[in-house]
C-alpha cells in the first residue's frame, strides 16, 4: 500500500472526525448539563444543510450562504428550546426520547413539504473544488482541507469559550453539578437557551460543510446522530475534550476501516468473502470500539462527573 494513500485516508478520517465533533460537542453539552437526551439534534444538522443550500443558491456566495444558514439554524434551535424542549428538562429520559423522536418526524416532514423529497444539490465553492498538492506526489481535495481548517478553528474557539470565559465557566459548573451551580447564581434558563443556539450553530456548520460531500436529503440527520451519540459515549458525556478525542477516534477508525479492511481481508480470505465481509466489518468497527471502551471504562474515556 503506498504511503500517500494511507495519509489520504487518515486525512479523510480527521476531516470526518472534526465534523462529527461539531455535532457531538453540542450534544454532549446538552446531555451533560441539562441531562437531556435530544434526538432532534440531528435534525438541526439537516436544517443547517438545507438552509445552506438555499442561501448559497440565493446569494451565489458560498461563505455568505453558510453564515446566513448558521445564524438561521441557531435561531431555530433557540426557538425549539424556548417553545418545546424546555418543558422536558424535568422529565425522565424516556419521555425526552419519545418527544424528540416526535420532533424528528415533524421536522423531517416539514422539510419535505418546504423543499420536496428530492435531494438538494450543494456544491463546494468554485475556488476549492479542485485538488491541491500538499506533499510531493500527494494531491488532496482543497475543500476537504478547508473543512479540516474550519473544524480546527471552531474546535479551538469552543475550547476558549468553555475554558476561558464566564459563560464557559457556568457551562462547566453546570456539567459537574447542576443544582449547585444554580444555587451559586448561575442563570440557568438563559444559559440553556444560549447553549441550544450554540449547539444548533455548530450543527449548521457541520451540515454546511458535509453537505457537498455527503447528500442534502431528508433523513441525513438520523444516521449521523447515531454516530454522534457513539462519539459522546466513548468520550464521556458532558466532556468537550472527550467529544474531540471520541470524534477523531470514530472518524479515523470508520474511514480507515472502510478503506483498508477489505484490502486486509483479501490477503487472508477469498476475494468473494473479503468483498462481502469487508464493508460489514468496517461498519461494525466503531460499534465494537464503543462496546470495548464501555466494557473497560463504563463512564467513557473522560467522565465529566467524578
Amino acid at each position: 500500500m503506498p504511503p500517500s494513500l494511507f495519509l489520504e485516508q487518515i486525512l479523510n478520517g480527521v476531516q470526518f472526525g472534526l465534523m462529527l465533533f461539531l455535532l457531538a460537542a453540542g450534544l454532549t453539552l446538552v446531555f451533560g448539563i441539562m441531562d437531556m437526551i435530544n434526538l432532534a439534534h440531528g435534525s438541526l444538522y439537516m436544517i443547517g444543510a438545507y438552509l445552506t443550500a438555499t442561501f448559497v443558491g440565493l446569494t451565489g456566495v458560498f461563505w455568505l450562504g453558510v453564515l446566513l444558514a448558521v445564524v438561521g439554524t441557531a435561531l431555530i434551535g433557540m426557538l425549539l428550546e424556548f417553545s418545546i424542549l424546555r418543558q422536558l428538562y424535568k422529565r425522565d429520559h424516556l419521555s425526552q426520547v419519545l418527544a424528540t423522536f416526535a420532533l424528528i418526524l415533524i421536522i423531517n416532514e416539514v422539510v419535505r413539504i418546504i423543499w420536496g423529497s428530492q435531494p438538494l444539490l450543494l456544491s463546494a465553492p468554485e475556488g476549492l473544488s479542485g485538488p491541491i498538492e500538499i506533499l510531493p506526489g500527494l494531491n488532496y481535495s482543497a475543500f476537504r482541507l478547508t473543512i479540516i481548517a474550519v473544524g480546527l478553528v471552531v474546535a479551538v474557539g469552543l475550547f476558549l469559550l468553555v475554558n476561558n470565559t464566564r459563560v464557559g465557566m457556568w457551562l462547566r459548573a453546570g456539567a459537574s453539578n447542576r443544582e449547585m451551580a444554580q444555587a451559586m447564581g448561575v442563570p440557568i434558563k438563559p444559559l440553556f437557551t444560549l447553549l441550544f443556539g450554540v449547539g444548533a450553530a455548530l450543527c449548521a456548520i457541520a451540515g454546511a460543510f458535509l453537505g457537498p460531500i455527503l447528500a442534502v436529503q431528508v433523513g441525513m440527520g438520523e444516521s449521523i446522530l447515531i454516530l454522534a451519540f457513539v462519539v459522546i459515549v466513548i468520550g464521556g458525556i458532558g466532556s468537550i475534550k472527550g467529544a474531540l478525542v471520541g470524534a477523531l477516534l470514530v472518524g479515523i477508525v470508520d474511514t480507515a476501516g472502510r478503506a483498508f479492511l477489505p484490502l486486509l481481508l483479501s490477503q487472508v480470505a477469498s476475494p468473494e468473502v473479503a468483498s462481502n465481509l469487508g464493508p460489514a466489518l468496517a461498519s461494525i468497527l466503531i460499534y465494537l470500539l464503543m462496546a470495548v471502551v464501555l466494557f473497560f471504562k463504563p463512564q467513557g474515556l473522560f467522565p465529566a462527573r467524578t
Binding site: A102, L105, I106, N108, E109, R112, I113
Partner: peptide, 11 residues
C-alpha cells in the same frame, strides 16, 4: 405527510 401527524400526536 402522515409522519407529521404521528409526530404531533406523540409530542
Amino acid at each position: 405527510y402522515w409522519q407529521l401527524g404521528v409526530g404531533l400526536i406523540l409530542l
